[in-house]
Amino acid sequence: MSTPRIEAALRIAADAAHRNPFSTPSDGRPRTRRFAIGDPQADITRFLAILDRHGLLAPDGRLKPEVQLISVGDHFDWGKAIERDAVATSSVRLLAWMAAHPADQLIPLLGNHDLSRVGELAGFTDARFATIQAEADRLYRGDATDEAQERDFLARYPEVPNVELISRDFGTFREVQREWVKSLLLTGRFRVAHAPAEHLLVLHAGVTREDLLAVGLPDALHAQASTVAETLNRALDEALNAWDGRGPFSIPSLYQPGNARYGEGRGIFYQRPSLLPEEAALRALTPRRRFDPRRLPPGLTQVVGHTRDKRCRELLALPPDSHDGVLRHLVTDGSSLDYRLGPPPHTGPGEAVLIFTDGGMRESPLELFELLDLDTGFAARPVEDAHMGGRE
């Protein structure tokens, strides 16, 4: 999996991670090759290998100067309990490697796992988290977790909504991660959304018409990707200006972290498309954890991560199947919808589109994992394997 370019990138990442959190300013250079990569919940070496396989790394271990990369969010939390320390280190190095690039070249978008560091986990020290996690590990048994024991746990630790969050979902937390997330938020490096084209929006989990109306954007502007991105990013910045930097961070109407009283976190970083009848009540909330995909803004194509193929099929009540690595799409005209593998076909102004990029980076075979070429709308083409192994 290693090449000289990957080794150089790993050195940059390790060195950058030992610095105080920082962000490299924009350099204003034109980027002629633009890509989006789905949830980077995998070891940094694997992440870099995917980039290198697609010919995006320069010999010095950074992105090639002409490349712009959009990371669709969720830079933390994967693996088994025994891997927690290694995962925690890898995730910080990944963010640090990203921060070492100009801000207009590598754009990290926020996911729910990123926001959790200043949300549900805002008040935890490493020592307190380790103590609570040891208890959560003893209690957590999936659906068989004892309800009475969990209620007692939450009475003592009301900052979190359940034991699963501490034992599994956000289980690789370290204080240094929060410092990086906080810094990248306050410097404007972490964004909610990015608009690479007039009707093309990139963000973690997608927005509905209700989400955009809730932040004051009228229906007539919902297909204008740059306006949508500006509105969402402005909501983030206004929330940051109102935040004390210590308590749990939230964005009115868009993001509410979970706790024992509120339940699980909700909002545009958590929500997934669902047609399951039993989730109708969840779809009716704002903010929410589920949304009706028929309420997506028509005329807008949204590039998202957050949900893998197997989970999409479950929530959309489709026959079970699972394809890791590949891009997928959902197209709806507001009444019917079509979910398939691959990039979407040509669509009209009355149709809404989701392009899913979460290919299960950790589990997908490396040779199957696809990036989205934002200029062509198709999966990026890898370079020849023989070329990848050589020195430059």
Results as ranks from 00 to 15, higher is better:
350 G>D: 03
61 G>T: 02
22 F>T: 00
167 S>Y: 03
371 L>V: 06
169 D>H: 09
187 T>A: 09
13 A>D: 01
3 T>G: 08
96 A>S: 08
380 A>H: 02
359 G>K: 08
83 E>G: 02
179 E>M: 10
286 T>Y: 01
309 D>I: 05
14 A>G: 09
349 P>T: 02
149 Q>M: 14
363 E>R: 12
325 G>M: 04
73 G>I: 11
326 V>K: 14
46 R>A: 00
212 L>T: 08
269 F>E: 02
29 R>T: 10
40 P>A: 08
181 V>E: 03
206 G>S: 03
258 G>H: 09
352 A>I: 04
302 Q>K: 05
61 G>K: 09
140 Y>T: 05
387 H>R: 15
68 Q>L: 11
391 R>C: 08
370 E>C: 07
196 P>H: 10
281 A>N: 10
128 R>P: 10
65 P>Q: 09
155 A>W: 12
332 T>W: 06
3 T>D: 10
1 M>F: 11
162 N>W: 04
279 E>Y: 12
70 I>G: 05
133 Q>E: 06
187 T>D: 13
350 G>P: 01
272 R>C: 02
197 A>W: 04
55 G>C: 01
349 P>A: 14
72 V>W: 13
44 I>E: 00
360 G>M: 06
127 A>L: 11
56 L>S: 04
356 F>R: 00
232 L>M: 09
82 I>E: 15
192 V>S: 10
112 N>A: 01
205 A>R: 07
377 G>K: 01
149 Q>R: 14
269 F>C: 07
342 G>T: 10
105 Q>H: 00
203 L>E: 04
265 G>F: 02
69 L>I: 00
272 R>A: 11
17 A>N: 08
74 D>V: 08
310 K>N: 14
305 G>M: 02
292 D>G: 00
294 R>C: 09
322 S>G: 12
115 L>E: 04
373 D>T: 06
323 H>Y: 14
206 G>A: 06
18 H>F: 09
186 L>T: 15
346 H>L: 13
368 L>C: 13
391 R>P: 07
174 R>H: 05
318 L>M: 15
360 G>N: 05
333 D>K: 11
242 A>P: 02
300 L>R: 03
67 V>A: 07
101 H>Q: 00
176 V>K: 07
350 G>R: 05
353 V>S: 03
211 D>E: 10
65 P>T: 09
100 A>G: 09
230 E>H: 13
